[in-house]
């Protein structure tokens, strides 16, 4: 029998039955169900694995404090800062008020 001669209501029933048999959802108005957000694979894990792992001494010294690993670059930097402070070339004191501050007192 040609589908063109079938009544729309009968076609709908047929479709419904078809969905029932093949276990697909019957959605005659083609409404969006948001199923695609569940169907799509999760992209987070592959995104987090993009950059290759780098060897970070600072992180390892932080992680294993009891091993007392010496980060030589950091020690050197620290010594330089101390030396600079001794010569009066350290960072200025934090401003307590707007009047002390060089930036906040300015008119902009």
């Amino acid at each position: 029998m040609n589908a063109a001669f079938m009544q729309p209501s009968r076609l709908a029933t047929l479709k419904q039955l078809q969905c029932n048999i093949f276990q697909t959802s019957y959605n005659p108005q083609s409404l969006r169900t948001g199923a695609k957000y569940f169907r799509a694979r999760l992209r987070g894990p592959s995104m987090m694995a993009y950059y290759p792992k780098t060897f970070d001494i600072a992180q390892i010294t932080r992680q294993y404090r009891d091993l007392e690993i010496v980060n030589e670059d950091e020690e050197e930097r620290f010594q330089d800062v101390l030396e600079r402070k001794r010569r009066g070339k350290g960072a200025p004191k934090k401003a307590k008020s707007a009047a002390d501050s060089r930036r906040l007192g300015k008119k902009r």
């Binding site: 969006r32 169900t33 948001g34 199923a35 957000y37 569940f38 987070g44 987090m48 993009y50």
Partner: peptide, 25 residues
Amino acid sequence: IKARKGVGANEIARRAYLMVARNQT
């Protein structure tokens, strides 16, 4: 890297809200 971590941590919750928000039924 911060963005990547944020996406990974919130992906499932975001997907759930997206599914509800886009669901016309």
